[in-house]
């Protein structure tokens, strides 16, 4: 998952380091000890098992932006599927074997006239079923604070300039919906296969801080 994750971001032409956090490298932090303590207490009480924790982590690793990309690519190539995706996202996800998850998904479409951007100002709600775990910046104070008030500036910091004749719609996921941006299909991709299209649908395009590019 992580490999894909990173390649995704590289497509967006952000040149920055990807620090890794080794699990146990040097003394444990207080919170790492707390995780061990809680997990062991839960296991001792028979509330959960080590195996369940492992399997849940595996399921988590299996969810990645590849799920969202698959859905977007299908929608680009198949107008009937796109219609289904907009009107009944759960059904559309089921059709291509992408897990629906716990929350209701709302798909918002980017067009020549409208550009959508997703944020969660209160915490970090994110369409994990289709995008996996959120990147750090999505959960940062800077993004959560500014995306609602200065969306165009924030997008510009990601290298995306949205023209003034395009309406910017920000979506603050405050409650029970999760938002997936259906990016605009770039020119020069006519006749591409779904697989080839999926490869240019990056995570950031599905959050709204980037546009899909043909190369």
């Amino acid at each position: 998952m992580s490999t894909h994750h990173h390649h995704d971001h590289d497509h967006d032409h952000h040149d920055h380091a990807h620090p890794t956090q080794p699990d146990i490298d040097g003394p444990l932090t207080y919170h790492q000890k707390l995780e061990i303590a809680i997990r062991e207490l839960m296991i001792e009480k028979g509330i959960l098992s080590a195996d369940e924790v492992r399997r849940t982590v595996e399921a988590m690793d299996a969810r990645s932006p590849a799920g969202g990309a698959k859905v977007v690519a299908r929608a680009w190539n198949d107008p009937a599927y796109k219609q289904l995706l907009m009107s009944d996202p759960s059904k559309a996800l089921n059709q291509v074997g992408v897990e629906v998850g716990l929350y209701k998904l709302v798909v918002v479409e980017n067009t020549d006239k409208v550009h959508n951007l997703v944020v969660c100002t209160l915490c970090s709600c994110y369409p994990r079923a289709v995008l996996g775990l959120p990147p750090d910046w999505y959960k940062s104070r800077a993004y959560r604070s500014r995306a609602v008030r200065e969306p165009r500036q924030v997008m510009a910091e990601f290298g995306l300039e949205v023209p003034d004749d395009t309406t910017v719609r920000v979506h603050d996921s405050t409650a029970d919906m999760r938002y997936l941006v259906l990016p605009k299909r770039p020119k020069g991709t006519e006749g591409w296969s779904e697989e080839k299209l999926a490869a240019i649908v990056t995570r950031d395009t599905m959050i709204g801080v980037a546009e899909a590019r043909a190369s």
């Binding site: 609602v148 004749d165 309406t167 719609r169 920000v170 979506h171 603050d172 996921s173 405050t174």
Partner: peptide, 9 residues
Amino acid sequence: PAGDTIDVE
């Protein structure tokens, strides 16, 4: 621009 919106649940 004046047309920009914010959606909140």
